[in-house]
Computed example of a mutant assay.
Amino acid sequence: MPSIASHIGRRELRAAGLCYLAIIALGLWSELFVRGQLVVAGDAAATAQRIAAHPQLWRLGILADLLMQVLDLPVIVVLWRLLRPVNETLALTATGLNLVQTAVLVGNRVQLLAPLELLATSAFPPGQREALAMLAVHLHGQGFGIGLIFFGFACVIRGALIAASGVLPRLLGGLLVLAGLAYLLNSFALLLAPDIAKWLFPTVLLPAFFGELLFALWLTAGRPLRVME
């Protein structure tokens, strides 16, 4: 690596960490306290009834999801700057994978608008509207799994770069690799073996949650770094 020193500032790291923590909080809220409360697994009629009774809450969940993707961008930029000196090609690859994931998830949110539109129309019989609304929710889950494949690979690459940096904590790198592998296992199971995925979820994602949370907290601590570019 060339011997030009670059300073990653405390404020940049802290800002990225706060964005990361906000992403985690928004994701938990929209998944557990919005969809987790309104979607009844295996019951299209009950799900449709709850969404129709709380349309604003459903919309707020979508907004929280979109804010997550907006906050992704400053985190992606800071991580690119942080890890580029370790291996520019791999850091750029992780950045590209993360951007693909963000784009996939943004487009996938349209699926969550479908239940509101379907339940407000009279073009279909009630039972058909409910079934189509539930299908849209299910497809959103599938799309989310597809997006996390790209993020899983990004986490593995970033974790490996952190572990190899000699500057950043190796433990964080290992935890981020584990998080990425958990995302990949969950997503591939969702696509290839749905019955197994139901058995794995949500336990398989616990390593991802703790790995990302600890990494976000470390960034938020804002410890300034000098790395070599």
Rank of each mutant, 00 (worst) to 15 (best):
D72M: 13
W58E: 00
V34T: 09
L112M: 12
T93L: 15
V100S: 05
L92D: 12
T121E: 14
A103H: 09
L57G: 13
P85W: 01
V70S: 06
V78Y: 03
A91I: 08
F33R: 02
L73T: 14
A114L: 13
T93Q: 11
P115A: 06
V110A: 15
L60F: 09
N98Q: 08
L67W: 10
T95C: 11
A94Y: 06
L113V: 06
Q111G: 00
V70I: 14
D65E: 11
A94G: 11
A41G: 03
D43R: 03
P74S: 07
I51P: 00
A114F: 08
L71N: 05
A114P: 02
N98Y: 07
L28D: 04
V100K: 03
A41H: 13
N87E: 14
G36A: 09
W29F: 15
L90E: 13
R35F: 04
I51V: 15
R109K: 08
Q69F: 12
A45T: 12
G61W: 04
A53I: 12
P115W: 00
L99E: 10
L38Y: 04
V39E: 02
Q111W: 15
F33I: 05
V70E: 07
A53E: 14
A94I: 12
L38C: 07
S30K: 13
N108A: 15
D43K: 03
W58A: 01
P115I: 02
V75Q: 02
T47E: 11
L83C: 02
T89L: 11
V75S: 01
A52M: 07
W29N: 07
L63Q: 05
L82C: 02
I51S: 00
P74Q: 08
L112D: 00
L66G: 04
A114D: 12
V40Y: 03
G96A: 10
T93V: 14
R35G: 01
W29E: 14
